[in-house]
Design a protein around this nucleic acid. Structure first.
Lengths: 249, 249
DNA sequence: ATGCATTTGTTCGTATGTATG
DNA sequence: GCATACATACGAACAAATGCA
């Protein structure tokens, strides 16, 4: 490598001054990360590149990366590289969880994008959750949720057809809460949440701006109104490890 | 295929009798599945094989499989085949969740296998959860949980070293609850649970008897004693889709 | 990393039986 | 009887995903 292309941090290394080289490297990388030189989720240079950059052996770089990894600042993945840890969005499951509230609690700006709003025949799982017979008509809303413009959730919401005018309300309203309110459901709460995970389809990965080899977290939940009647069944998909689910009893 | 190797069900097909062939095929497969001829999680013959077996076109078999898939009886995966849906173990997160209770609630026989029981230095995540400084000594127990002999969980339990005699108690005792009781912690409850997912390592996949391309569900949880002091931090890994996590507020 | 075999997914075209008017 | 619409069934080819060597 050309001497002139070295970073400022690489020049600062002091040998035999009582501070191990790997500590100095770790500190330099820490500084570069917090300074934003390597953005969250971004990839650090390869170990070989860093070794050449700092003019040390690759083992020394690995020691530094191990330190950062233990501290949770970076995530090292075999065959892929080292990545700056992303800020995780904790999705706290509570009785009355609304998307916008969740995002705002993390000091980010919520926004959404309706992908589909159609009336379909309920499949077995959906019908079972809504307490309908298979094939019954339901309104389905597919929506991409974003935080500061970055996709963080992809949700399918199913509503029983007995809620007259809901589809029109959803077309007019930006939020589900408002649309339900427009058809007389002024309050609803989450009854049960089921969590699983799977590999995303190509389409899901593209929409959520995530690699295809990382799993989706999937929640299925049933919302009921004040009288206990089911008003919504939702299946939401979240990209790992950007989103985690948290349960506080 | 030799005429003699056809299954009984394939001979039962009646053409032009008012019941569509694909319905008859779906019904025959339904019967074979419920009769245990294709066990849960097992693979059905390929579409081509079934088509030859039933002496119909592959489209007709696909139609039948689509019906079973919609009903939730089978799961079809491109490039792999069609699989009989497995009975899912719902892991209900509650304040006082014990492994053996969970398994017994599903009418299965719980058992366990200790993989490691060692004293180690706490890494950042573990130390943070236990309220210790990084590097503090902790007791770590790694345990494989089985239901009717089938692996369903792989858990790492971390205990603060202040619990004197715990390691010996864990060596002697079959369950964590009993060991904690032996060192004076007669009651503990789950404080917070965090859920995420990732692809398993080769070792994890082997231990949990699962394919490497299917994600693990991972829970991290903190257990506190009656006084609110942290007595355990646990990281458990569950195979999807055999296990799902359920929150009931 | 690459190619290959296997398996499901999709899309053509064609033909036939059935219900309707 | 005839025209039409619809569901059913078959055949061929190719696309896409998976697993393996």
């Amino acid at each position: 490598m050309d001497e002139e292309t070295k970073t400022a941090s690489s020049r600062a290394l002091q040998r035999h001054d009582g501070v191990a080289l790997w500590r100095q490297i770790a500190q330099a990388l820490r500084g570069a990360i917090t300074a934003g030189r390597y953005p969250p989720g971004g990839r650090l240079p390869t170990e070989a590149a860093l070794a050449q950059d700092f003019a040390v052996n690759r083992h020394t770089v690995r020691r530094a990366l191990e330190d950062l990894s233990r501290a949770g600042l970076v995530r090292v993945e075999q065959g892929r590289g080292a990545f700056v840890a992303e800020d995780v969005l904790d999705y706290t499951v509570a009785s009355r969880t609304r998307f916008s509230e969740w995002i705002r609690r993390h000091n980010k700006e919520p926004s959404g994008q309706v992908l589909r709003l159609v009336e379909v025949a309920a499949e077995a799982v959906v019908a079972g959750a809504l307490g309908l017979r298979a094939g019954a008509r339901v309104v389905m809303l597919e929506r991409l949720g974003l935080a500061d413009g970055r996709p963080v959730s992809l949700a399918n919401h199913y509503f029983p057809a007995r809620l007259r005018g809901l589809r029109e309300a959803l077309e007019a309203s930006p939020t589900i809460t408002a649309a339900l309110s427009a058809v007389g459901v002024t309050d609803y709460r989450r009854q049960v949440t089921r969590v699983t995970a799977r590999i995303p389809t190509a389409e899901e990965a593209a929409l959520l701006a995530m690699p295809r080899n990382r799993p989706l977290l999937i929640t299925e939940n049933v919302n009921v109104d004040g009288a206990g009647a089911v008003v919504e069944f939702g299946i939401a998909r979240y990209p790992t490890p950007r989103v985690q689910i948290v349960f506080e009893p």
